[in-house]
């Protein structure tokens, strides 16, 4: 029986770097609700209230909730938002000027979630206030709980980061910033490019990520710089694919409106960094993070943070809605080893 070599324990943990809206606290709005005394009136009340006080900007709010613990009235209904009425202390008569609120009890104030929850933990908090709809992204839940990658995947991730560290060490000896990077094709687990920082050479903009992006270009028959001087900056030429298959690269954490999930092979060759993963020892700067947007990378794993970092520290360029491509980012992979590299 063939058994894959797997490490059972890891000294590191990866955390997804999610958008601020996924990580923020649940925002609440003040509202009026009332018990439904006569259950038979429920559908009639919903119709009436939808007409009188439509909750147009809150499609995620469930108008009626169950209250199992209160035996005298099993249901409660949202009447309106506090901001919908001028006078904030009100009775049923004020709320229903035409006086048709059959089956409702005395109104009371509640706080309801202002937005649809985006993560399970937001959903759990929101639900304590008032029921909402929630479309769970299982990948995000798993990522936040640290269950997204299995042992085998983690072992692979560690191998790739080790390669990046190895390159960084070589670069450091040559007087460069101790940063290394590796670009991998996750469909085949092949390393496409390995590079280290070269900023103290002829071109100060050749950060490790920029080096790797150019090496990927070389692997596809392009490229702009001469990397021959640096033996630890190298690439593996890709072979033409026979057909126009799209590489199966799984579902991304962030919904992207671009075409990174299909058609990533052009003229029998992969198109720039589409579908590829980057492993880099330190959080990319703004230039490098945006270069990865232009290059349509699929995922980025980095170890340590950088004070001007653009993938979590200063900015989250990978989640910026205005941009035409987004990628998933995870931090913390082999953090201690890379921290050591920088010291």
């Amino acid at each position: 029986k063939q058994k894959t070599r797997v490490l059972s324990t890891f000294t590191w943990e990866v955390t997804p770097v999610l958008s601020d809206e996924k990580l923020c606290e649940v925002e609440l709005l003040e509202a009026f609700a009332a018990p439904i005394i006569n259950k038979k009136q429920t559908s009639c009340l919903i119709k009436q209230l939808t007409c009188l006080y439509p909750l147009n900007n809150l499609p995620h709010i469930k108008r009626v909730r169950n209250c199992r613990d209160k035996s005298d009235h099993p249901l409660e209904i949202i009447i309106c938002l506090l901001q919908d009425i001028p006078n904030r202390e009100v009775s049923l008569n004020d709320l229903f000027p035409e006086g048709k609120a059959n089956g409702l009890g005395e109104p009371f104030r509640v706080r309801i979630p202002a937005y649809q929850p985006l993560t399970r933990s937001q959903f759990e908090v929101a639900s304590q206030h008032w029921p909402t709809t929630f479309r769970e992204n299982k990948q995000v839940t798993d990522a936040l709980q640290g269950h997204l990658f299995n042992t085998e995947e983690k072992a692979k991730m560690q191998t790739f980061m080790e390669k990046a560290i190895e390159a960084a060490t070589v670069g450091k000896k040559m007087g460069m910033e101790p940063v290394g990077a590796v670009i991998v094709n996750p469909a085949t687990d092949e390393v496409v490019a390995v590079g280290h920082d070269c900023r103290n050479g002829p071109n100060p903009l050749l950060h490790a990520v920029m080096v790797c992006i150019d090496l990927v270009a070389f692997s596809q028959g392009g490229g702009a710089f001469n990397h021959n001087k640096y033996h630890n900056c190298c690439f593996k030429a890709v072979e033409s694919f026979p057909g126009e298959h799209a590489i199966n690269i799984g579902k991304p954490l962030l919904p992207s409106n671009d075409h990174s999930l299909r058609g990533n092979i052009v003229n029998g060759l992969p198109y720039i960094c589409t579908g590829y993963d980057l492993y880099v020892s330190r959080e990319p700067c703004v230039m490098c993070a945006m270069a990865l947007v232009h290059s349509r990378i699929r995922r980025v794993f980095y170890a340590t943070s950088f004070p001007d970092g653009a993938l979590g520290t200063k900015y989250k360029i990978h989640t910026k809605k205005d941009l035409n491509h987004h990628y998933d980012v995870f931090k913390g992979l082999m953090k201690d080893e890379c921290q050591f590299l920088l010291s």
Binding site: D214, A217, G222, A224, I272
Partner: peptide
């Protein structure tokens, strides 16, 4: 031409 998405005019001129 370079298959490198970072080869914007500015980067070319900087070189």
């Amino acid at each position: 031409e370079t298959k490198n998405a970072t080869r914007h005019a500015e980067m070319v001129a900087i070189d």
